Simulated assay, not measured.
Amino acid sequence: MRFSIVKRLTAAITSATFLSLFTSLNVSANATFALETEPEFGVLSGFKGSELCTVAANTQSYIKHHPDDVKAVHDGSAVIGNDMSLARVNETLAFLCETYRSDVRAGRQSRLHNSEFVKANFEFIRWLPDKKNADRIASSSTNKVKTRLLNDIPAQQLFVTKYYAKLLDGSSVQSGRYDQALYQLPDDEQGLSKRAAEAKKAELTRYQFTRQQVIEGALLKGKLAKPLVWVSEEALHDVLLQGTGVLQVDGKTRYFNVHRNNGIAYDYHIGKREQARYWYFAEVPSILGYGQDLPDKIAIKPQVSLAGNVKQLGLGKLMLLSYHTERNGLPPKHEARLAVLADEGGAFDDNLFQLDLLAGNYRGWQDYYAANKHLPDYADVWILLKKQ
């Protein structure tokens, strides 16, 4: 995931005053979730109601068809509390799409961009970050920028990073410029379900090599896995970090998504090149989010999809993010957006201080930054539930 330039927002009220606005309180792992009766947020903008509905519907479908996914298909009440239930999460997602479709049929502007409608129809559960864990990670990180960003998380706002599908050039054949492959699952794992592969992990090629060993040619030398496409080494590190690559190959646009990894955990304390974690890929029709295995993954859209700690929060939480934006030297604007928790990442293990917004498709830092520099690094965040 990417870290944007810091524009720290200063808290305007004390914690004591802030908490007095709430009617109930749940604290877990040093993160706080509280029902807020009078939320204040910016003008709803920066997202399309159609794409928000698409992600909501796709996520709801996953929840319906995968009740056995105990990692992600649960209500998150153990952490969030505040009368959270899976039934209410489903009702919220369904109501969101019903509202959007009703507005389309009536030929009117989407009420999902109307602050008064949102306040009248949803309960707001304010999420305050787990600062203790963020500070702990910051104290041991070797990345100075990451340390600063984590230390600067305000007591009343979440750290909101942005991720994107990496736009890359590639080749169907290996060359001097394109010397690293995106590999499909090794040959000895073809046809195995994720569960079956897990049972045989001690025997499988996938678990035998670190990222560095693969880059040095371990798979190629033994012809252990099929290259899907060839990219540069820098591009490989980027797509391993972002999770999805949008490649121009021989004049065609092709999508590649991470499939299964080598079982080594993501290390939040080190940079992308030092990570030992390595992902094998599969070619897919679009950008994908969470799923137990590739055929099940949720199709997601930019600007309305969030990655986060689905293990603790549960999939499908509708969230409202509020922040101040700065454009071209103009006075800051108070803006907000709705988005759905539909993705995850290794950086979110035991992480209740951060969310990651899917920003779009970009070639690299410069065009990503040009399009998103107005967005700050921290935001007020609420989990929304349809009022009963």
Rank of each mutant, 00 (worst) to 15 (best):
I5C: 12
V6P: 02
I13C: 07
N26E: 12
E38Q: 15
P39F: 11
P39D: 06
G42H: 04
G46F: 04
T54C: 11
A57I: 10
T59M: 01
Y62E: 01
K64M: 11
H66L: 11
D69N: 03
V70L: 13
V70P: 00
K71Q: 05
V73E: 10
D75W: 11
D75Q: 09
S77Q: 08
R88H: 03
E91F: 07
A94C: 08
Y100T: 01
S102N: 04
Q109V: 15
R111C: 05
H113Q: 09
S115T: 03
F122I: 12
E123F: 15
F124H: 03
R126V: 04
R126S: 04
K131N: 13
N133Y: 08
N133F: 10
R136A: 09
S140Q: 12
S141F: 07
S141C: 13
V145L: 12
L150I: 00
D152V: 01
I153R: 13
K162M: 12
V173H: 12
V173G: 03
G176W: 01
Q180P: 09
L185S: 04
E189W: 09
Q190F: 10
K194I: 11
K194L: 06
R195T: 15
A197Q: 10
A199L: 10
E203F: 06
T210H: 09
R211V: 09
E216N: 14
G217K: 00
G217P: 13
L219Q: 09
K223M: 08
K226V: 00
V231N: 03
E233N: 10
Q248T: 13
T253V: 12
N257L: 06
G263I: 03
A265N: 08
D267G: 14
I270V: 15
G271S: 12
K272C: 12
Q275C: 11
R277Y: 09
E283S: 02
I287Q: 14
Q292M: 11
D293S: 13
D293P: 04
D293H: 11
D296A: 08
I298L: 06
V304T: 04
V310H: 00
V310Q: 00
Q312Y: 03
G314I: 00
L320K: 08
S322H: 05
T325D: 10
E326T: 10
N328P: 01
P331K: 07
E335Y: 02
V340D: 02
G345E: 06
F348S: 07
L352W: 09
L355W: 02
L357W: 01
D367F: 02
N372F: 01
H374M: 05
P376G: 05
D380I: 10
L384P: 01
